[in-house]
Design a protein around this nucleic acid. Structure first.
Length: 502
RNA sequence: GCCCCGUUGGUGCAGCGGCCUAGCACGUCGGCCUUUCAAGCCGGAGAUCACGGGUUCGAAUCCCGUACGGGGUACCA
């Protein structure tokens, strides 16, 4: 294995809304790289836009990372050698950098007002020209700026972009990127409210925090030359750039609520396991180089390589995620799986949990006993609700008509139920294996086929046509309750038959 | 409009100049197994490797163009 130097990577979201799976995947790649190289994974909150600031967002971001198990080495809550990790608390740093750039002649104060800018854009568009700033503020005098300030006008700081030249940037996934600087206009680095723009703030912070790899969405590629320009002017090194492809919806468009594209926490609530989501997202834009698909987080981390990140966007497939979830559920630790299932059962009926008439808390032992047979027949955790609720209700109301399975008549139902009651009264010990033996033995004495024998019993015991395996279910239900249900089922069926013949 | 990135079956990936009569997985169809449902196993359909030119003895793989898709073009990130 090639030895790699420890990477310092940061996940730097803006607290402007819920955390989307696209952002989450970026965080994943950050984390994988950090863990693979023995480096650090850092969270930095980029709250430089006070207009879009959402106070709940930061919690949502941390909760999402936490759920996926992406542990932080440095961040707002846990601190670190470069604290604070929230940009609004580091304003001085950016203002100093801006001042330095102004002194060196790489940036200037601009008092062009937003209305003027809007009018300019409008005129350009009307004339069929490319809309953009025309660098009109470049040669303002100190006096002019002071005058504007005195009048209460807005003053920003703009970076002065060279009029000519080509910028080449090495991208770790795309190779060499080339940009024509003459197409790039002077851009704002410090807003009139004293806050920096993304361009300035992240460059300063990445340098201050010793970031080695900037992993971010490909929507940043076009503005990357700005970042390198700032670095050159500030005389600080350029980190490695890793622009990852977007995740799109089935129609190729950006993921949105419309597409069922949800935030990370919605997947949690819908019953996906963190390992499955992590595994699925990792493979959306990266692969280990062979056909391996199901992997643990440690496997992914150890096989992760930035060079193997794809350069084209991937469409999100809910179907494949479901399959992958099932795969992880099938191999998950039994206790851990049970723990994940419990809240799905205990939440209120209206939220998809057990019927409200079922008493809380739910008996974890019963659930755990069923986990081995449940795990391979659920796609998402809440699927267990409909599968095992019959174990928790006092009474069950089977539909007699459903007891008559394929190629069966009423007589067979009676035979099955009666024989079942008799056999289950005797079985010792009352466990799955013995129950199976006893019930299977009945095929000979009754002349019924296995299916004909078990269908009425299943329906009487569970009130479902589709249920978990019978013998395990009966064992967990217990002898008393099983026999009671069989008797009631028998009565109900007899009533049903006589009503029908009337 | 201009700039940037991309393009392998419906979807996610493998492929890095000959091993490709293009492999794997999801999905789909059929079968087996079977107490229901799953899981598992076996098999099928599905791709002129976006298109057109080059380079080469040889191209899905390298180069150019076109088309299409996406992104950017803010005192948003």
């Amino acid at each position: 294995m090639r030895t790699s130097t420890p990477a310092r990577v940061r996940f730097a979201p803006s607290p402007t809304g819920v955390m989307h799976i696209g952002g989450l995947r970026t965080a994943l790649y950050d984390w994988f790289l950090a863990r693979k190289t023995g480096g650090q994974f850092i969270l930095r909150i980029e709250d430089t836009d006070r207009n879009r600031y959402d106070p709940d967002a930061e919690w949502h971001i941390k909760e999402s990372l936490n759920w996926l198990g992406l542990d932080l080495d440095e961040g707002p809550d846990i601190g670190g050698p470069h604290a604070p990790y929230t940009q609004s608390e580091r304003l001085e740093l950016y203002q100093d950098a801006a001042a330095k750039l102004i002194d060196a002649g790489d940036a200037y104060y601009d008092d062009t007002q937003s209305e003027e800018l809007a009018a300019l854009r409008q005129r350009q568009q009307a004339a069929g020209q490319a809309p953009g700033y025309d660098n009109r503020g470049r040669y303002r005098t100190a006096e002019q700026i002071q005058e504007s300030r005195d009048e209460g006008l807005d003053v920003v700081v703009r970076f002065k972009v060279p009029d000519h030249g080509e910028m080449q940037i090495e991208d770790e996934v795309r190779g060499r990127l080339k940009f024509d600087l003459s197409l790039l206009q002077d851009f704002v680095i410090l807003k009139s409210d004293g806050f920096p723009t993304y361009h300035l703030a992240h460059v300063v912070d990445d340098y201050e925090m010793g970031i080695t790899h900037v992993i971010r969405g490909e929507e940043w590629i076009p503005s990357c030359p700005r970042h390198v320009l700032i670095q050159q002017a500030l005389d600080i090194p350029t980190p490695k750039y890793v622009h990852v492809p977007l995740i799109t919806a089935q129609d190729g468009a950006k993921l949105s609520k419309r597409h069922g594209a949800q935030s990370a926490l919605e997947y949690r609530d819908a019953g996906y396991t963190p390992d499955a989501v992590l595994n699925y997202l990792a493979l959306l834009g990266w692969s280990p180089g062979d056909d391996t698909e199901i992997m643990t987080r440690d496997e992914i981390a150890s096989r992760f390589e930035v060079e193997r990140i794809l350069s084209h966007p991937a469409k999100f497939s809910a179907q494949k995620l479901e399959w992958m979830n099932q795969q992880h559920i099938m191999t998950a630790d039994e206790d851990a799986l049970t723990d994940m299932i419990m809240p799905c059962l205990e939440r209120p009926e209206e939220d998809g949990g057990f019927l409200d008439e079922i008493e809380r808390p739910i008996d974890r032992g019963i659930v755990k006993a069923m986990v081995p047979v449940l795990r391979e027949r659920i796609k998402v955790l809440p699927d267990v609700v409909a599968l095992i609720d019959f174990l928790f209700v006092d009474e069950v109301h089977p539909n007699p008509e459903e007891m008559i399975g394929r190629r069966m008549d009423a007589e067979m139902v009676l035979t099955s139920l009666n024989a079942g009651i008799e056999a289950l009264e005797e079985v010792e010990p009352f466990d799955g294996e013995s129950i199976e033996q006893a019930l299977r033995g009945l095929t000979e004495s009754t002349g019924l086929k296995a299916g004909q024998l078990f269908t009425p019993i299943r329906v009487a015991v569970t009130a479902k046509r589709i249920a978990p395996p019978l013998f395990e279910s009966i064992e967990v239900l217990g002898r008393e309750r099983t026999i009671t249900r069989l008797r009631k089922g028998l009565e109900a069926f007899e009533r049903h038959v006589s009503n029908r013949s009337d």
